[in-house]
Amino acid sequence: QIFVKTLTGKTITLEVEPSDTIENVKAKIQDKEGIPPDQQRLIFAGKQLEDGRTLSDYNIQKESTLHLVL
Rank of each mutant, 00 (worst) to 15 (best):
G46S: 05
I2W: 02
K26Y: 03
I43F: 15
K47W: 07
T11S: 07
F3G: 03
I29P: 00
T6N: 06
D51A: 07
P37K: 15
T65L: 10
L66D: 01
E23G: 13
R53Q: 09
T21I: 04
S56R: 10
E15A: 10
K26C: 02
N59K: 09
D38S: 13
P36R: 08
I2A: 02
Q1C: 15
A45H: 13
D51M: 05
K26E: 01
I12R: 02
L49H: 00
E50C: 14
I35E: 02
T65Y: 08
I29C: 02
Q48A: 12
I2C: 03
Q30W: 15
D20Q: 05
F44I: 04
S64T: 08
K62D: 15
L49A: 02
D38P: 07
N24P: 00
G34V: 02
K47F: 09
H67C: 15
K10I: 10
E33G: 05
I35T: 07
V69K: 07
R41N: 12
I43Q: 08
D20Y: 07
L14K: 00
K62N: 15
L68F: 03
T13L: 10
E23L: 15
Q39R: 12
D38C: 15
K28C: 05
F3L: 06
S64P: 03
I60T: 02
D31W: 08
G52Y: 11
I35K: 02
F3E: 04
P37L: 13
I35F: 11
T65S: 05
Q1K: 11
V25Q: 00
T6E: 04
L55E: 00
L7T: 12
E15I: 13
D20H: 06
K32Q: 11
I60A: 02
T6S: 07
T8I: 08
K62T: 15
E63L: 11
E17P: 03
Y58F: 04
F44L: 05
V4D: 01
A45N: 15
K62E: 13
H67Q: 10
E17R: 06
D20S: 07
A45I: 06
K10Y: 11
T21V: 05
K28D: 02
L70M: 11
L49R: 00
R41L: 13
D31V: 14
K5M: 11
K32S: 10
Q40F: 15
Q39G: 06
V69G: 06
F3V: 06
K10Q: 10
T11M: 11
L14D: 01
T21M: 08
E33Q: 06
V69S: 08
F44K: 03
P18Y: 12
I2H: 01
L14Q: 00
E15Q: 11
H67A: 07
P36V: 05
K47Q: 15
L49V: 04
G52F: 11
Q40D: 01
I29H: 00
T21N: 05
L14G: 00
K28W: 04
E50M: 09
G9A: 04
I60R: 01
F3C: 06
K10N: 09
